[in-house]
Structures are given as C-alpha cells and as structure tokens.
Amino acid sequence: MKRFFKINRKIRNTFHKRWMLLSLIVVIAMPIVLGVGLYLKSAMLLEQTSLIKLLFSKEWKPMQGLFGLWPFIVSSLWVTILALLIAGPICLLAAIYMTQYTKKYFLRMMHPVIDILAGIPSVVYGVWGVIFVVPLVSNHLAPFFNTQSSGYSILTGAIVLAVMIIPFILNILIEVFRNIPDQLTEASLSLGATHWETVKHVLVRKAFPGIVSAFGLGISRAFGETIAVLMVVGNVTQIPKGIFQPGYPLPALIANNYGEMLSIPLYDSALMLSALVLFVVVLLFNFASRMAIIKLERHT
C-alpha cells in the first residue's frame, strides 16, 4: 500500500512538472507563432507589392487591388500622438502631486479611481465618447476654433484614448516617482532649493528615463486600441488635414472590414498585414520602453 502511494506520488509529480513545462513552452512560443502566422497571411500581398509601397501609398481601393495603408497609418499616428499630448502632461502633473505634495492617504484614496478607470472596457469608453465627447467637440470645441466638425474626428478619438491611457501611464509614473529616495529631495532642499525647484531640476531629471518609458508604453497602448476609437473617429479613408476631420486608424480598418475580406483573398492579406504592422510597432515600442525601465532600475 505504502509503495503504491509512493509510485502514485511520483507519477503525479512528473505529470505536474510536464504540464508546467508544456504550458511555459506554449506561452513562450506565443509571440513567435503570432508573428509568423500574421506574416504568412500577409505574404500573399507582399509577393505582389513591395512593403514600402504598401506602407506609403495613398491608394486604398480593395476592389481594384490597391492596398495603400498610408491614410490609416497617418490617422493612427495623429490619434496616438494627440492622445499622448493630452494624457502625458496630465499624468506627469498628477503623479508629482500625489507623490510629492499630499498626505499618504490621498494616494490610497486615488488608487481605486485609477484602477476603475483602467478596468472600464473599451466599448464603454466608446459609448461615453459618443454621448459626451462627440457633442463636446462638435458643439463647443470646433466652433471655438472657428471650424465645423461632425464631432466624429481625430480629436474626439484622441480625447477618448487619452482618458483610456491615463490610468495606465499614471500608475507607472507613480511607481517611478515613489522609487526616488526621499533623501535626494532632502539633499536638494538643504541646498536652498524650493520644493518646486527640487521637483523641476532634480526629481524630473532623475525620473526622466521612467517618464520616457511610461509615455512609450502609453503610445503602444494607444496605437493598438480598437473599439473605442473606431466608434468616435469617423472612419473616412483620407489623410486627415486637421484634428477636427475624421480619420481611419489601422485597428479600426481591421475591425470594420472583417466580414467582407473573405471574398477577396488579397483583401484578407492586406488586413493581416495591417495587423502585422500593428503587432510589430507595438512590440517595438514596448520593447524599447521596458528596456529603458530595466536600465533605470539597474542604476538606482
């Protein structure tokens, strides 16, 4: 009986270990499989047209076999950069305020707010965008700048995106500023600097790599966001000439055309290429930003 248990235990042990290892291999293989899979699907189009031409051509006419991604890439860049311009300063100011100027309980109180913002699904942000930000842009912001807008515009997408990436960037920045030792602040103060001068000259400089990577991660998050942006950005295939015009970012392109693409094989291929572009850009930004964080940690 005892021996039986022993064998049983051994088998179970081996099984557990095998399962763990197998899972680990699956997980590690995932990014490779993702990348290769998307590449294989887009290869058909790439054989026909060069990558450079696909990326920088303005002609998007699937029925004629023209798949220029440039309008979508430009829209994505507009929306993403604008979102970061809005969210970046807000996060930086808020992170400094919460880590440098308030009592500890304030940060504890704000944590649920940040967490809930981070947890709200993207489709709900989209609904909020439609009922709140779209009218705001068309009725107030556009007239203020003396233009007209339907409200479904690059700016609307950027505002919604900004709100979505705020909790994400803010959490990283709070961590970055909290990890700076108080003694550095004390050293600067004891040299006669005011609190603000200390923040400006010492803390922000010390946190600089962290700030850059927080923003980088924010960019990569914004670049791939789909549904919320799709719902408010207008989805007109054109190179937008201003922030009050509609745009058509890459993720929206993929999401909007999933039904039709099967009938034309090259169309399918073009959409998978967009997904591949998205995947590569996001991975690169993520990679660079995380490397910067790791370097920062090593230095302090």
Binding site: K41, E225, I254, A255, Y258, F279, V282, N286, I294
Partner: peptide, 25 residues
C-alpha cells in the same frame, strides 16, 4: 520570461482577434 510576458501584455487584442480568425479559417 517576465519581459516576454510584459511584451505580450502590450499586444492589442485586435491582433489576437485577427490571428485567431486566421487560425480558425
């Protein structure tokens, strides 16, 4: 491995969706 997972965390869900769709087909 952690680094890799963090990278994967950043991949937008639409990419998973497109990939999943291709595999499904």
């Amino acid at each position: 491995i952690r680094f890799l997972l963090d990278l994967l965390w950043g991949v937008p869900s639409i990419v998973y969706g497109a990939f999943g769709f291709s595999v499904m087909i």
